[in-house]
Design a protein around this nucleic acid. Structure first.
Length: 304
DNA sequence: GCAATAATGATGAAGGACCC
DNA sequence: GGGTCCTTCATCATTATTGC
């Protein structure tokens, strides 16, 4: 009979997910040897290696994959048990698992901060990633719910719009088009465009808009985050489509400006989304109700 | 840079001795 | 018999160091 500890499973799940002993140690506030020793003991209990090293990378063996599936399941069940117990006690307490598209990092911490002031015993577990990965996690039912701007068309999803997501064409304050009253999309297409990688929600919206108007642009540069794009725009490398949530501060200090382009700003919504039929924990329900009712009071953005 | 190993310390459970 | 204190041991963590 294997004698596995909960700590070993937690460490194993973390190492598998992050592909690194060191990263797992950082995540769990331990030292790397502590992780190494526990994984070794787990392998001794299993009687089979769980990881194999190829060069500097580690990969799961067949036994490791089976262990990963089981450990994820056990950890999820324990989280769910914690939620059930807290629900029986009627306390808003315990883990809150959310996957969030990266652009939402400009407003979600603010919402979460005010929520945690009210419910300090909630343990938020956030994953900021791009739209494609958020959809993957949504379909795998990995989180309580996800937050995204562009919800895939799927009858199996429950969606809750909660906040305006305004997308604008952003340029450096000294850009030649900065003071122009009306800019056509064709005119815009001649500019140097900085765009997000495919898989990003902002890119998805922009591509669709261009297709609708039969306009083609040649991207000048592709960057992996809104933050990188913002810095590049401020450096005068080009213009970009960005959520106005992400450039609020830069607009206030006159580092960036929003161009007056036909069809812009694009008014979209932020959505909380989960699979239909998913039973939300008390913590998740409370947070969902909180953002539906309070987000527009807490998060303000200048649209013009 | 990253994982493994060795030496060492902290902590908690179990068991025995002692006292009331 | 029950409660308290002390010792022992296992476990899990750390730092320092080594090897790839």
């Amino acid at each position: 009979m294997m004698h596995l500890t909960f700590q070993q499973l937690k460490l194993f799940e973390s190492v598998s997910r992050l592909g690194s002993y060191t990263r797992a140690a950082e995540e769990l506030f331990l030292t790397q040897p502590a992780v190494s020793i526990q994984i070794k003991r787990l392998e001794e209990q299993t009687g089979l290696p769980l990881f194999e090293k190829v060069g500097k990378k580690i990969f799961l063996t067949a036994a490791g994959k089976a262990m990963y599936e089981a450990s994820s399941d056990i950890l999820n069940r324990v989280d769910s048990l914690k939620n059930s117990i807290e629900e029986l006690k009627g306390e808003v307490k315990g883990p809150l698992h959310l996957s969030v598209v990266t652009t939402a990092k400009y407003f979600l911490p603010n919402l979460l901060g005010t929520f945690l002031q009210k419910y300090p015993d909630v343990e938020p577990k956030l994953k900021f990633t791009n739209r494609a990965r958020v959809i993957e996690r949504l379909m795998n039912n990995d989180d309580d719910f996800v937050i995204m701007g562009q919800v895939p068309k799927d009858d199996n999803l429950e969606t809750y719009p909660f906040l305006n997501n305004i997308l604008g064409i952003v340029a450096s304050a000294g850009h030649p088009l900065a003071n122009k009253k009306h800019i056509t999309l064709k005119e815009l297409a001649r500019q140097r465009f900085l765009i997000r990688e495919s898989g990003s929600g902002t890119r998805y919206v922009f591509d669709n808009l261009l297709k609708e108007h039969g306009v083609e642009i040649e991207p000048y540069m592709e960057l992996g985050s809104s933050e990188a794009i913002k810095q590049a725009v401020m450096a005068g490398l080009g213009i970009a489509v960005l959520s106005l949530h992400s450039v609020q501060l830069e607009r206030e200090v006159n580092k960036l400006t929003v161009l007056n382009v036909e069809g812009f700003p694009l008014k979209r919504r932020w959505y909380a989304v989960h699979l239909k039929g998913r039973k939300l924990s008390l913590v998740a329900r409370t947070f969902l109700e909180y953002i539906l009712e309070e987000s527009h009071k807490i998060i303000k953005v200048k649209f013009d």
